[in-house]
Design a protein around this nucleic acid. Structure first.
Length: 860
DNA sequence: CTAGGGTTAG
């Protein structure tokens, strides 16, 4: 037993006087009952074990010290019980204290205590101390020591050491048991070492541990799912496991959910419930996340009620998953249910706070509420934000284009020491990009601690969205050179960059690259290709991509319908829509915007009304502002201005600037000054600084020749420091984008361009073209007006297209604003005179001009 | 004394 001559640990670890006093009678009832007698060793030991088992380690340690003070040196079993309790309750600090007391006791340590120490340090993340103990064990090493050490390495990102240790063990003549096997296989559950895992798998089969042990089965599921990315094999392992429990069920459900197959995850969950296994909090978190991935609200609600019935609602993680599920699944972006769950949670942690904040940022985008919640979180004070919290918050600031707020948020991230996470750095890049600060975005990119694919994708996307496709392509080459493998996201950004500038040549190049990289069947990319070709003016190429897709989703259909609508093919758009319905895909809000705008572009009033009604009647989608704006457009363009006003008044909510701007546009087309003025007033009521309203109104007055009013408006704009967006047209030739502004002489071939324009002017006048000088918005002489007309940016671009591209190719022009009426008419004549097809994308739609006719039927 | 499952993300 114990030798009484050893020094008392209490002398080596003096405690504050208050604690050095003998424990109170309450805590040591049996021993101090007859305080005059010497306390008995066995009694004290029993007390110690009782405290340790109850998890009250402090009391157990007091007892230990008390023993020592009374000359009764504790035995190994007492220490061992204490250590186990520390490990169980993850109280590493006291565990280390016991280790030092153990060292001071100079007892001869046995395998059990040493193994406990390895486990203690391993769980505390201190692999080095664990290793030191393991190495000094000598022949005291047993299977437990080996398993603990292998597992320690496997959990410390030292997979190779874990594997070596496993083979060392075999060389030492040990026969691995299920613990060793599952630890070693865990170390192999990654792409790099999966092949070693397969070798070990062979051992497992031979030794029969696969049949006998659920844990070994679980580690094999991970070997196949995480190591070999083969869910089918993982499922086979699972199916062949003779015993299943809630852990193995949850594991297989989670892997399906994580590896992009949430449907199967949910099917497995149902199978689990039907076969009588009881889902626990882990299972619910996992299956809820699969459900939110699919946005299956109804199923999510059923899970919610199951959670309630299972009494798991108070678990933080389950609550967090519910918050996330409601945020992602609620179709109209309402956060109400999500918030309700959040508010009723008894305890919050970083994840639940972050989940609700992220929910607000991503769902409908109540970014202010997200920031508000951050304030609440800080005030509440018990939870520290993490890098996920900050990337969500920075995104909120980007959505609000509030750079000042973003900077404050970023400072908080710096203070919390989280700024070096790449997710935070990347969010900062996005923030600057959203606020139109590309130089700062670029600097933030250069200063990143570590650039990963997401960083490249972020900056590429930023350049693409800021109409700077050249820079985004440069970055693309840079990534390719650096050997980083690009992903679908990269291609999608590049395609949307090409699409927004209308660089079809660049778009085709990317198409070729992604074919080579094997992304041709990727749904997201195909959708991006459809919209790229369509937005670049090549609707047939878009349609071809669409037809070749094997798996179309709502986005594919909507992209195609939008494409046909913008290109003025209302019939094909509506045909697509009906085909979509019969193929069983449910339309969403965006689809209806496309359908209604198809009707409006084609002047199909009755059809438009029919579809407008059907959206709520048959598909339960309540019309949003955009849909009302489409209907106002439809009525307004057809000249039913009064009806349009009635319609606006009948709306269930207050019309916003978009709706009024649409009406103002219609007023301009139909020359209704009074109503136009009213519309402009309504716009300025909501946004006194909206330059578009001033410009439209000024155009309206100008076309009626009311020059004083035009001048008044200009003065008003000047006083408010408002600048009208400059009209700009561009054209891509040989992969280069050429931009033109009104009266531009910057282009190297300017001389040729103006000569060409003079020629054209003469030619088309002979053919019957009459310049419509109403489109010149200054009060000048007629001749001068005509001169101005022929400096319009779209005409310059057409002239450049004619001299720089060969004949059968259509000339594709892009304009940031709506195409001018005179240019539209002139281009029709030009198409007739030159036999060239001219395709114009303006801010509203496409014009396919051929043989003197335009696809818009002069109705836009 | 040794082993297995979950949540927030650009």
């Amino acid at each position: 037993m114990t030798s009484l001559s050893l020094p008392s640990p209490a002398k080596l670890f003096p405690q504050p006087p208050s604690q050095r006093r003998p424990p109170s009678p309450q805590s040591l009832t049996t021993s101090t009952h007859h305080h005059k007698r010497k306390p008995k060793f066995e009694t004290l030991k029993d007390n110690l074990i009782r405290h340790a088992d109850a998890g009250d380690i402090k009391k157990a340690i007091s007892t230990l010290d008390f023993m020592a003070q009374n000359g009764l040196t504790p035995d190994l079993t007492s220490f061992s019980v204490l250590l186990k309790s520390c490990i169980r309750t993850r109280n590493f600090l006291l565990g280390k204290l016991i280790h030092s007391k153990l060292t001071d006791s100079q007892l001869e340590l046995d395998s059990i205590v040493l193994n406990s120490l390895i486990s203690l340090y391993s769980k505390n993340g201190d692999w080095f101390t664990a290793q030191t103990i393991f190495e000094t064990m000598g022949d005291k090493r047993d299977l437990v020591s080996w398993s603990a050490m292998i597992s320690c390495y496997a959990h410390s990102n030292m997979e190779l050491q874990a594997i070596f240790t496993f083979f060392d063990m075999i060389e030492c003549g040990e026969h691995p048991n299920q613990f060793c096997f599952s630890a070693a296989i865990q170390a192999c559950s990654n792409v790099e070492y999966a092949w070693i895992g397969m070798v070990i798998f062979g051992f497992v089969i031979k030794t029969g541990y696969f049949e006998s042990d659920v844990c070994v089965g679980c580690s094999l599921i991970d070997l196949f799912s995480k190591g070999l990315r083969d869910l089918n094999m993982a499922k086979k392992v699972f199916d062949q496991m003779p015993q299943k429990n809630s852990v193995s069920w949850t594991l297989i459900i989670t892997r399906f959910s994580q590896l992009c197959d949430p449907r199967s995850a949910i099917e497995l969950f149902l199978e689990m419930v039907l076969t009588g296994s009881v889902p626990d909090k882990f299972t619910f978190s996992s299956v809820l996340s699969a459900s939110s991935e699919l946005q299956w609200l109804l199923f999510g609600q059923q899970l919610h009620s199951l959670v309630v019935r299972s009494g798991l609602l108070s678990d933080v993680c389950v609550g967090c998953s519910l918050v996330d599920m409601y945020a992602k699944s609620t179709a109209d972006g309402s956060m109400n249910d999500s918030r309700k769950v959040f508010d009723r949670m008894p305890v919050h942690n970083v994840m639940s706070w972050t989940a609700i904040i992220t929910g607000y940022v991503q769902s409908g985008g109540d970014d202010r509420e997200a920031i508000q919640l951050y304030h609440m979180m800080m005030e509440e004070g018990s939870v520290k934000p993490n890098h996920f919290t900050f990337s969500a918050l920075l995104k909120a600031c980007g959505n609000l284009t509030n750079l000042e707020l973003g900077k404050i948020v970023y400072c908080h991230a710096v203070k919390f020491g989280l700024a070096y996470f790449d997710s935070v750095g990347n969010a900062l890049i996005s923030l600057y990009a959203r606020c139109d600060k590309m130089e700062d975005a670029r600097r933030a990119f250069e200063l990143l601690f570590e650039k990963n694919l997401v960083s490249y994708n972020t900056i590429i996307d930023a350049y693409a969205k800021n109409l700077n496709s050249d820079d985004s392509f440069d970055f693309f080459s840079e990534i390719e050179d650096s050997g980083v493998r690009v992903d679908a996201f990269t291609y999608a950004s590049l395609l949307s960059g090409a699409a927004s500038v209308g660089a079809v040549g660049k778009g085709e190049q990317i198409h070729a690259r992604l074919l080579k990289a094997g992304f041709e069947s990727n749904q997201c990319i195909c959708n991006a290709l459809i919209s790229m070709y369509s937005r670049c003016g090549n609707i047939e190429a878009a349609f071809q991509v669409f037809q070749e897709m094997s798996d179309r989703n709502i986005i594919s259909w909507t992209a195609m319908i939008t494409g046909f609508a913008k290109h003025g093919s209302a019939e094909r758009a509506l045909d697509m829509f009906n085909k979509m319905l019969s193929s069983g895909v449910k339309p969403n809000e965006v689809t209806y915007v496309a359908v209604l705008s198809a009707c409006s572009h084609a002047g199909m009033i009755d059809e438009g009304w029919k579809y407008f009604r059907s959206m709520s009647e048959y598909h339960g989608i309540s019309p949003r502002m955009e849909h009302y704006a489409c209907m106002v457009d439809l009525l307004g363009r057809s000249g039913f201005l009064e009806k349009a006003v009635q319609f606006i008044k009948s709306m269930p909510f207050v019309a916003d600037a978009l709706v009024w701007r649409t009406l103002l546009g219609a007023c301009q087309v139909h020359g209704n000054v009074e109503l136009g003025k009213h519309a402009a007033e309504m716009i300025h009521e909501q946004d006194p600084n909206d330059p578009a309203a001033y410009v439209l109104l000024s155009n309206l007055y100008a076309s009626g020749g009311q020059w004083e009013k035009v001048a008044d408006i200009r003065k008003g704009m000047k006083a408010r420091n408002l600048v009208k967006e400059a009209g700009c047209s561009w054209i891509e030739t040989e992969n280069k984008v050429h931009r033109f502004y009104v009266g531009d002489t910057e282009h190297p071939q300017a001389k040729e361009i103006y000569e060409k324009l003079d020629q054209l002017a003469a030619k088309i006048k002979k053919m019957g073209y009459v310049p419509n000088t109403n489109f010149v918005l200054h009060e000048v002489e007629e001749e001068q007006k005509e001169h101005y007309l022929f400096q319009h940016s779209e005409k310059l671009a057409v002239a450049f297209g004619l001299i720089s591209t060969p004949k059968p190719k259509p000339i594709r022009i892009f304009k940031n604003l709506r195409v001018c009426g005179d240019c539209h008419s002139a281009m029709k004549y030009i198409s007739l005179a030159t036999g060239r097809e001219i395709v114009v994308r303006d801010s509203n739609r496409f014009h396919h001009i051929n043989n003197g006719l335009c696809s818009c039927n002069d109705y836009w």
